[in-house]
Design a protein around this nucleic acid. Sequence first.
DNA 1: GCCAACGTTGGC
DNA 2: GCCAACGTTGGC
Length: 161
Amino acid sequence: MAYWLMKSEPDEVSIDDVLAAPRQTVGWFGVRNYQARNFMRDGMRAGDLALFYHSSCAEPGIAGIVEIASGAYPDATQFDPASQYYDPKATLEQPRWIGVDVRAVRKTALLSLKRLRTIAALADMRLLAKGSRLSVMPVEPHEWRTIEALLEPLLEPLLEQ
DNA sequence: GCCAACGTTGGC
DNA sequence: GCCAACGTTGGC
């Protein structure tokens, strides 16, 4: 099983939106970066786990954990001229973009980007690399374990009071 | 809103 | 195949 990090703008789809969806599952579509696509297409398998990261918002950071709930399938928005994700070069015979379904595992207290940057064990994390913009990226097992351990105590809202 | 970093496009 | 110009991402 592999670990991933997936970025979403909470104004578009937040962890709360995933939790509120039928079967707590949403389609992950709109990825228009080849590297991110290739990770989804070639690396992701149903059952993999992903950190759900809120980006482009007041406090960016990890907001929950989701499970990959399907294999990769063609992203329908690429064929829809009305969609902001429309790609005129994609064809039904040769789709260019794919998506997967993700299911909420749990929401966590926000583990902020600011805090992530202070953790020595995460110094080499891809998310934290200078200029990193990938919306889907692998997470090393040791990074996953480090982050999980940090997410746990944060589930207790009164712990620091 | 600014801007650094990165990805894509297209002329040559 | 190079590379300048442009577009996008995303933190601040």
